[in-house]
């Protein structure tokens, strides 16, 4: 009976008190920790790559007529950081923030609003403005070629019509 008591006392004495006094002390975070993500709205294209990569549907897209909203719901997030991996612009940054406790689910939402471009032919809204801007820069050095103002469906029709005329006509 005495042996375990002595052993315990020795171990306890050697180790001392190891408790980290969080929240009065800093948490035991390593530099690699993945916490909540931050979306930098100023460079987000609204391409939806993150939405596609998100395993738990924490990132979703809410579409309405002329607006596309990228919604991040931290409450469902599994903090895998895949969104940051795939984001082509680096707009998504993984922070070390983990103090997310709240009594309102709404608090856990982050919304990025994207306005969509309107197709002059059919009047449909189709592409988020920043994505269109990127494509123009990449393919047409910044000017918007006329075809790019038109929605893909109308482009197909216009394109086929043109080809019929020049080849078959």
């Amino acid at each position: 009976m005495v042996k375990p008591i002595l052993k315990l006392i020795t171990v306890a004495k050697e180790v001392g008190v190891v408790t980290r006094k969080y929240p009065y002390e800093s948490p035991l975070l390593t530099e690699e920790f993945r916490g909540k993500i931050e979306i930098d709205a100023s460079i987000c294209w609204g391409c939806g790559a993150c939405v596609k990569a998100c395993p738990s549907n924490a990132l979703t897209i809410r579409e309405s007529m002329d607006v596309m909203e990228l919604v991040y719901f931290a409450g469902r997030c599994i903090f895998c950081g895949r969104c940051a991996d795939v984001c082509p612009t680096g707009a998504i940054r993984v922070t070390k923030e983990f103090e997310l406790a709240t009594d309102e689910l709404e608090d856990l939402e982050q919304v990025v609003i994207h306005r969509k471009v309107k197709c002059p032919i059919c009047g449909k809204h189709f592409v988020p403005q920043p994505l269109e801007k990127y494509v123009c820069e990449k393919c047409a050095k910044g000017e918007i070629p006329t075809y790019m103002m038109v929605c893909p469906e109308c482009r197909r029709k216009v394109g086929v019509k043109k080809m019929i005329r020049c080849k078959g006509g």
Binding site: W45, C47, G48, A49, K52, A53, V86, P88, V127, L131, E132, Y134, V135, K138, C139, M148, P152
Partner: peptide, 9 residues
């Protein structure tokens, strides 16, 4: 990544 930039391009 499914961004569909190709579609718009």
């Amino acid at each position: 990544i499914g961004c569909m930039a190709c579609l718009y391009a």
